[in-house]
């Protein structure tokens, strides 16, 4: 193993020049995926948590079953199940849609758990005060309880979003042309590992600030105990 081999394999700028349009396409697909799946999962999670806060017993058991089910299944298994299962069943869904469904199911259960914990951290007096001024339950939830709840669990929400963004790389397995997929396609075109490292560098640049922020928030959260 000599320097030339290493350079060819890991720092091959010639091949970056060759494949950067592919990587760029992959990058935009990853961004698009995150911008769709993030809000979808988050909103679904808030709906789940709000329903949970109504304390309807049987409904809460259904929600817990939903949440625990999707927290127990690896997202990749879910994705493959949807991507290969539905077509065999006669429903032809494009990979992109399969990815959207899988990630919304998965992330809504995580977001739902987090928002539920947030709502439970708010004292009942808040809801009562809001109701006493004539707001209905949903209004009190939206204007009074949720804003405080979300602030209380902000670190968990950010952390879950980070995990979600990272998880979108799984879509490469069902050939969705996102960043990791395009990096692997490029790797096969140029016969070296540089595109993979470039993709990793892109993830790093994109996500490292979030990681730093989280470290601070998490430490502050735990210290307040």
């Amino acid at each position: 193993m000599d320097w030339e081999t290493l350079r060819f394999s890991f720092l091959n700028y010639e091949s970056i020049a060759e494949v950067y349009p592919l990587l760029l396409r992959g990058f935009w697909m990853t961004i698009k995926l995150c911008l769709l799946v993030g809000p979808l999962g988050f909103i679904a999670g808030m709906v789940l948590a709000t329903i949970f806060s109504f304390h309807i017993r049987w409904l809460n058991w259904v929600l817990i079953a939903y949440v625990d089910f999707f927290r127990s299944i690896p997202p990749l298994v879910l994705l493959i199940y949807i991507n290969y299962g539905l077509p065999m069943f006669g429903l032809d869904v494009p990979a992109f849609v399969a990815v959207l469904i899988a990630f919304t199911l998965n992330s809504s259960s995580y977001y739902g758990e987090i928002v539920r914990a947030g709502i439970e951290s708010i004292q009942a007096g808040q809801m009562e005060a809001a109701r006493s001024t004539g707001l209905n339950r949903t209004q009190a939830m939206i204007y009074v309880v949720l804003p405080q709840a979300l602030r209380n669990v902000a670190p968990d929400l950010i952390s879950n979003t980070l995990e979600l963004i990272k998880a979108t790389s799984i879509a490469s397995v069902v050939a969705l042309p996102e960043l990791l997929r395009m990096a692997r396609v490029s790797q096969e075109l140029v016969f070296n590992a540089t595109p993979l490292l470039v993709a990793a560098a892109i993830y790093l640049v994109m996500l490292w600030p979030i990681v730093r922020l989280l470290s601070r928030l998490e430490r502050r959260m735990m210290s307040s105990h």
Binding site: S169, S172, L180, A200, L207
Partner: peptide, 8 residues
């Protein structure tokens, strides 16, 4: 923590 596990 920043890199997706699949990428690693």
């Amino acid at each position: 923590r920043a890199l997706p596990p699949l990428v690693i």
